[in-house]
Amino acid sequence: MGIFDRSSKYPDYWQAYVKSFKRPLEKDFNKLTFVVLDTETTGFDKTNDRILSIGALKIQGNRINVDDILDVYISQETFNKESVPIHGILRNGQQDCISEKAAMKKFLGYVENHFIVAHHAGFDIGMINSALKRLGLPKLKNTHLDTGVLYKKTLLKSYLVQPKEHYSLDDLAEKFLISKKDRHTALGDAYITALAFLKILVKIKEKKELSLRNLK
């Protein structure tokens, strides 16, 4: 290809990912696919910390297919002891770990051009973008929604009842009576986030028609 095609310097899996964005999006909100994800990381620093695992599932029309999920564990070169008690993921533990590159390849193949939903999505996306950067790749192109922000939209606004600044995934699980089993595993948290997301949509729908514009 010519020198004007900048993407040609990127590996095939990235090009396939970029190509998926050429597909037109579903117009019917109920037919849209959302990829709900969660990452477990060694810490909260976007440059020094690493992703330990990514869990993701797809929602289409209020439905999650159990056999169509992503659950990858990444082998670590550096190891942060402090985060193990939270996530319970030991370095190269029982899980089959793959390299960061293989994980990103899998992730890009899974997420394609779908909307990304995550709790405090900015953090997860930032971690993934850092991983991509280390592989010499650009940032994710997907539009994302944050369940933390969406949840606040469902609350009534009144200055006498101040909403909290941040709602944790635990807060949401409690409010929506979602079982907190498998909390602090990437896929478990993704599942909790997915249920919370569906419940939030119902709440928002009570107020206005569902459309991407109303969610953003």
Partner: peptide, 12 residues
């Protein structure tokens, strides 16, 4: 069997 299941959310 469980791997083939779909989880469906139904609003009231």
């Amino acid at each position: 069997l469980s791997q083939q299941v779909s989880i469906i959310y139904k609003e009231k």
